[in-house]
């Protein structure tokens, strides 16, 4: 994307933000709602720990750290590219044709047209709770752990973003796919909140390793907590999220390209 493209992108986003800010009450309600989605995710974890002392061999503080890491990563991805899930609406209505003829990137246009600044609420809430969760879980304050705390949500956000984009492309092949992408996006968040030790072999291979959700929270949390992996994974996996994120992003970019080439207008 050239600098001209970037300027256009900036203008679209700014116009959207200004437009949505006109309706103050609606925006305030949406912002509160966005924060509440983050609250409910974490509250569900707390409820489970009301009836048991540990999950998959991990105590509340440890699982809470994983849940907040996953929460921040998801919130960032949702803010950046979450709206790409509206692709199916564009494909069905034929509006994608209009997007394709413009001299700008298709993906950047789609995410800019529907940018949802309300989602900042969930990010801010997540970051605040992450700081709290890390200190409660007894994460040592070292330059390395602080760097890991900073990099992990970003890498996780790239992983979730890749999943958002890759699953949205399903609409290119299957227009009536409905909310099927949610299974991997929101489902991925659900998965990554908990230690992967609680999942059976198939679910773990598919979600944790093949898709890479284990690198959103589980492995970096082990490194932050200075705990060995009960499943026998090497310690360096805790520092692998950026590499995993790069792989997922590359895969998603490939799937997206194939999808756009495959697109046939619905003609409506």
């Amino acid at each position: 994307m050239g600098s001209a493209g970037f300027t256009a992108y900036r203008h679209i986003v700014a116009a959207q933000v200004r437009g949505q800010a006109q309706y103050r009450a609606s925006f305030a309600i949406d912002l509160v709602g966005s924060v509440m989605f983050g609250v409910i995710d974490l509250a569900s974890v707390l409820v489970l720990f009301r009836v048991v002392p540990a999950l998959g061999g991990f105590a509340l503080g440890e699982v809470f750290l994983m849940a907040t890491l996953a929460g921040v990563a998801f919130a960032l991805a949702d803010l950046a590219v979450g709206n790409v899930e509206r692709l199916r609406v564009y494909v069905r209505s034929g509006l994608l044709d209009a997007v394709l003829v413009r001299p700008l990137g298709v993906l950047t246009q789609l995410t800019a047209i529907d940018v949802a600044p309300r989602r900042v609420g969930r990010v801010v809430f997540g970051v605040a709770v992450l700081a709290l969760a890390a200190s409660r879980a007894g994460v040592a304050v070292t330059p390395l752990s602080l760097a890991l705390l900073l990099v992990t949500p970003i890498a996780g956000a790239v992983i979730f973003s890749g999943i958002f984009v890759a699953t949205a492309t399903v609409a290119f092949w299957w227009i009536e796919s409905g909310e099927i992408a949610n299974g991997l996006t929101y489902g991925g968040l659900n998965f990554a909140q908990y230690p992967i030790t609680i999942y059976g072999a198939i679910l773990r291979r598919l979600f944790a390793y093949a898709i890479g959700f284990a690198f959103v929270a589980y492995y970096p949390a082990l490194a932050l907590l200075d705990r060995a992996d009960p499943l026998g994974g090497p310690a360096w996996l805790g520092y692998a999220p950026p590499a995993a994120a790069a792989l997922v992003a590359g895969g998603a970019a490939l799937v997206w390209r194939i999808g756009v080439r495959h697109y046939r207008s619905t003609g409506s």
Binding site: L55, I198, L203
Partner: peptide, 10 residues
């Protein structure tokens, strides 16, 4: 899987 982990721990 999540609720079974709860039963396992309980």
């Amino acid at each position: 899987a999540i609720l079974f982990a709860v039963v396992d721990a309980g």
